[in-house]
Design a protein around this nucleic acid. Structure first.
Length: 480
RNA sequence: GGGCCGUUAGCUCAGUUGGCUAGAGCACUUGACUUUUAAUCAAGGGGUCCCGGGUUCGACCCCCGGACGGCCUACCA
């Protein structure tokens, strides 16, 4: 959007109006202006005859010759102002007519109620705070063009109040999460985003170069390994709420940078995490969205506790038959393919089962479900179940078919952790974060840990269909 | 990465089996109007029909290539 907007008739006209205003002694870009309050506050505290000031953007103008009605709009509300020639005088009235839709103005005057019952500010004095050289989006339909909504989000916010409302809620959601955690004595910490090794998850990282050290560094894909170092250091209830970066596909539920909440609590475990996440989601649903139900009809979501809990094996058997885990690889493969799955010939028994889970089970879990006891090989940073070393003591919270929060009883045995890393790295020791293993060797307390995808949580609670609708500036291809 | 669809005025959208000067509403300009609220009434201006090439007497429309976007799919601890 860098092309010069010259030749635009609207811009030319507005520049002419600006020049005319300047000639009449009106500065075109004002400075600080003291408001009685936002437009919403003005409406809430309305009192006929009260003298007030207000500042906002002009959103509609109804010019009736010797008097003008106009609507101001800010992020909070809309409020009508009334401008009369005999009240303002010839000069100021004439100058007011040089204002355009989208201009930021400051006004001063008394409140009154019009014949039709509309609370209104009668303007005694006005000042231009900022001249808009380009016109706002269409006043009735708003801005629809999806690409422009994302690329020029400010226009989306100006033209579509419901979009602003959604992002107000996102801000409130993040605030309530922080409140919820700090009330429970968790402290918020910041750990490196530039890492020598991108650990804590399996995803392609973004690589960048650090000139001063002459070495490549990675943007983090997860903060996990640093937060666990803090457990070793004696911080026993920590969380980090910030961006992760993953160099992978872009679709309805993936953005390369996304907001992740990670929480670790020493001397707790996966059960502690379950209590915490259920309480936290209910808290934000109630305080921010005012309800525990989202949407209507077949896809309606009910967050009323307790939430369903089912083991990975139970869910797979439920879907594929009670004998699924007794089948040979070939029989399982045949059955899965018959169910419509496309399987990689390299996959072993466990991966075939996992494909069934990811493609056929997870997407079908609409209501909140804690899926527990996952195969150990899939989760190298979690501790084994006490009664079965092939399974790990974890859950994945799935809502509306999306994984919202994985939680573990964290692995704190350095010898076992090193063995699992080796298994995953295929003996390539350079891929292993040795300092992290060293930290474990200094003794990490038993702990529960959890990650929560904030964008996805926001999608679920707001009913948004696309992650781009809950991220202010989502990633798009560059034009050109 | 693959498939399908879309891109027309500043914005929201019509439209043409390939044919005269490409339309509407909002917005803009001019005029009227001192209680309107999507103000109203009258007149007017405004277009690289996404870009490039091709077919044709003639292309916004058909064909080929490209850009960007959307949906699906693939990838994805």
């Amino acid at each position: 959007m860098s092309e010069a907007p010259s030749g635009n008739e609207y811009r030319e006209q507005r520049l002419a109006n600006l020049a005319a205003l300047q000639e009449m002694g009106y500065p075109s870009y004002g400075c600080a202006f003291t408001r009685t309050g936002t437009l919403a506050e003005l409406r809430e505290t309305f009192e006929e005859g009260r003298a007030v000031t207000a500042a906002a953007r002009l959103s509609t103008i109804r010019d009736m010759g010797k008097s003008i009605f106009a609507d101001l709009r800010d992020g909070s509300d809309r409020f009508q102002v009334y401008v009369q020639k005999k009240e303002l005088g010839e000069e100021a009235f004439k100058a007011f007519k040089l204002l355009d839709l989208g201009d930021q103005v400051g006004v001063e005057g008394e409140l009154f109620i019009t014949r039709t019952g509309e609370p209104t500010l009668k303007v005694a004095k006005w000042t231009l705070l900022s001249k808009a050289l380009l016109p706002p989006p269409e006043k009735w339909h708003g801005l629809k063009d999806v690409e422009m909504r994302y690329r020029q989000r400010y226009l989306d916010l100006v033209g579509n109040p419901e979009v602003r409302e959604l992002f107000n809620k996102r801000s409130a959601l993040i605030r309530e999460i922080r409140r919820y955690l700090s009330e429970r004595d968790f402290i918020e910490v910041e750990t490196p985003m530039l890492q020598a090794q991108a650990g804590g998850a399996a995803a392609k990282p973004f690589v960048t170069h650090y000139g001063a050290l002459g070495s490549d560094v990675y943007l983090r894909i997860a903060p996990e390994l640093y937060l666990k170092r803090l457990l070793v250091g004696g911080f026993d209830k920590v969380f980090e709420l910030n961006r992760n970066f993953r160099n992978e596909g872009l679709d309805r539920t993936h953005n390369p940078e996304f907001t992740m909440l990670e929480i670790y609590e020493a001397f707790s475990d996966v059960n502690g995490m379950r209590e915490l996440i259920q309480g936290m989601i209910i808290h934000v649903a109630e305080t921010v969205f005012g309800t525990l139900s989202v949407g209507e009809g077949d896809t309606a979501l009910d967050l009323t506790p307790p939430w369903r809990e089912a083991t990975y094996h139970e869910l797979v058997r439920e879907r594929m038959g009670a004998d699924w885990f007794d089948l040979s690889l070939d029989d399982a493969r045949t059955k899965a393919e018959a169910a419509g799955l496309d399987l990689d010939p390299e996959w072993d028994r466990l991966l075939v089962t996992h494909e069934v889970y990811e493609k056929m089970i997870e997407p079908s879990l609409q209501q909140p479900t804690f899926v527990t006891r996952l195969p150990a090989r899939l989760v190298p940073l979690a501790k084994a179940c006490p009664d079965d070393s092939s399974l790990v003591d974890v859950f994945e919270l799935v809502i509306r078919g999306q994984e919202v929060a994985p939680a573990y009883t964290e692995m704190n045995d350095p010898i076992e952790q090193r063995r699992r890393f080796m298994e995953q790295a295929g003996e390539d020791e350079t891929k292993i974060d040795q300092d992290f293993v060293t930290a474990l060797e200094h003794g990490m307390p038993p702990a529960g840990g959890m990650g929560v995808g904030i964008d996805r949580l926001m999608m679920i609670l707001s009913g948004a269909e696309a992650i781009r609708d809950v991220i202010l500036f989502p990633q798009l291809k560059q034009k050109g």
